[in-house]
Write a protein that binds this DNA or RNA. Structure first.
Ligand SMILES: [Mn+2]
Ligand SMILES: [Mn+2]
Ligand SMILES: [Mn+2]
Ligand SMILES: [Mn+2]
Lengths: 222, 222
DNA sequence: CCACATTAGAAGGTAAACCTTATTTTCACA
DNA sequence: TGTGAAAATAAGGTTTACCTTCTAATGTGG
């Protein structure tokens, strides 16, 4: 047993459940299996074990959902991950896109005392490098609540507040395009349907697909 | 597989082998089993697996010894542990006695890039909080080479350079006695045989058993 | 030199997480 | 309302790292 009393595998299932479904909706086995890179049979097996242990509930043919106990642990794992991300990026100056993977290792090997001390050392950061909130009080959300970039109107100026996609390829791509958290952009052009968005940046321009814009949280700028 | 390609269990066996026997002598199974808190049968099993994989050699009825490959990994694990110890103690201000255990978790979850960045962040420290060297070039020693406190003569002034015993109880005891790495002490009194030593500290006095004094490295002071 | 503790090995077992292949159940929607 | 995809279950297998109990070999100290 690791620090929190759960194995690394269990922690990963719980974390994924929280990220994919939050407290709201149940998550389909196939989705979990996809994210964790295991077969659906393996995911099923594990999820039943978690159900047996009271960490998730199962609505057959609908999906699995965290219980209060499960959410508790998931929340804690996410907290550990995001604090480590901050440390790796801010203090060690490592690449944010790759830091996620490294933090995902460290998160399972970190005792509560260490995480609390790290939190203080970093001066209680509010978000991870991708802009997602670092949960601190018992029922903090796992995801930000911003309006998605894809919903912006032409000419509107918005600030990028969070990237929901954690794929290093995607994050590196965004970085290359000059898009960063905190950055203010305005939508110059946006075709109908699934067509890409053209953005004006502080210096320069960027074009990104609608699918990607759907994973970027924003807030209105005065 | 963890960062270095070896499981946590394997890394712990290799590290222990290095600490207990270095490159010099073979280590008895019973000693390993004791340190790792497993049965001798389990230790035997595992050591044979390591032997099969070319990480250790076995001289029947004499013990197991690291090969070059095994030493390589052991050295790296020790390096990771000691760098984390430094971070936990110096930056996070955590108790050195307990930091060892926490570092022993983190050491198995740390990618090479992270360790190199951490090393730089800490400005390439030479030793861990207990004074043991942090290996950096390929064939650095795992242990310091100081003269043991138990060999000091009466009236002699020595500086404490390293504590070999990693038991948190022991380290806490030493701390309570006012003994710290770097501290200069002089031997006031020392009975014959296994009798305790009386030391004069910068401010105060301390009495410690001969067994304990046997685990404390020192260097002569001008 | 021989007894006894240490070391080795043999046999069988557990639990966690994975896997594959195959079958059955159910839901959604066309 | 029937059917096909998704979900669930069944069955059997693997690897790692533990465990216990028992027996056999060995090297050293008295
Ligand atoms: Mn993880
Ligand atoms: Mn993040
Ligand atoms: Mn360890
Ligand atoms: Mn140390």
């Amino acid at each position: 047993m690791k620090p929190g009393g759960h194995s690394e595998a269990v922690e990963m299932y719980l974390k994924s459940l929280a990220v994919l479904g939050g407290a709201r909706q149940p998550v389909a086995v196939a989705q979990l299996a996809e994210k964790l890179q295991v077969t659906t049979v393996s995911a099923n097996e594990m999820l039943h074990r978690l159900s047996r242990d009271g960490l998730v509930t199962h609505q057959p043919y609908r999906g699995f959902q965290l219980t209060e106990a499960g959410r508790e642990t998931a929340w804690d794992v996410i907290r550990r991950e995001r604090l480590w991300e901050r440390f790796l990026v801010d203090q060690l100056k490592l690449d944010p896109a790759r830091a996620i993977g490294w933090a995902c290792q460290l998160e399972h090997a970190t005792a509560p005392e260490v995480i609390e001390a790290l939190d203080g050392f970093l001066q209680y950061p509010a978000t991870c490098p991708q802009g997602q909130p670092i949960p601190r009080s018992a029922d903090d959300a796992v995801h930000g609540e911003g309006r998605m970039l894809s919903e912006a109107e032409i000419g509107e100026r918005v600030r990028l507040t969070a990237f929901d996609d954690e794929d290093p390829e995607v994050l590196t791509y965004l970085q290359r395009q000059g898009l960063a958290i905190g950055q203010v952009v305005s939508v110059v052009e946006m075709g109908p349907r699934r067509s890409p968005l053209t953005l004006r940046l502080e210096n320069g321009q960027a074009v990104i697909g609608r699918d990607l814009a759907l994973t970027i949280q924003t807030e209105r700028v005065a």
